[in-house]
Design a binder for these strands. Sequence first.
DNA 1: CTTCTGACGAAAT
DNA 2: CATTTCGCCAGAA
Length: 128
Amino acid sequence: MSFDFQQVYDLVDDVPNGSVASYGMLASLLPGVTARMVGRALSRLEDGAKTPWHRIVNSTGAIAPRPGAAEQRQRLEGEGIAFRKNGHVDMGAHQWPGPSPIWIEKSCMDPIDVMEIVSTWRRRRSDK
DNA sequence: CTTCTGACGAAAT
DNA sequence: CATTTCGCCAGAA
C-alpha cells in the first residue's frame, strides 16, 4: 500500500503561522514516510490549497530552488520570519516546537515518542 | 518491465 | 559556509 498524501497535508496544516518546519522533521513524525515523500506530496498540492506549504523548508533552513521560491520567502517574511545573509531561515529562532496536542491525539502516537523526536531535531540544530 | 526524476538529508571535502 | 556524493523511493513516461 502506498502512503496517503493526506497524512502529510494534515501535519503541515498543524504548523502554525510564524514558525517553520523541515521536510525531514515532518517525515520523522510520519512512520514509513521519508523527507522526499513529504516534498513530493507538497509538490502535488493544487493551487488553491489552504495548506501552508510555505512554512516547510529543508533542514538547513534554505528554500528549495524552484519556481515559486520567491513567493515562499515573501509569505514567510510576511509572517515575521527572519532570514540570514545567505538566504537561509533562522531556524534557531523559528523552528516549529512540534505538533499540537490535537494532532498527536488524531495520529494515535505516543506523546512521549513525539517529544523524543522533536527534541532530537532541536538538538541537531544547536549542535551545529 | 526499465529509466528518469526529483519542494530531501547527512557526511565528507 | 558552499558544494559534492550517495542513499532513498514513489510516480510518470
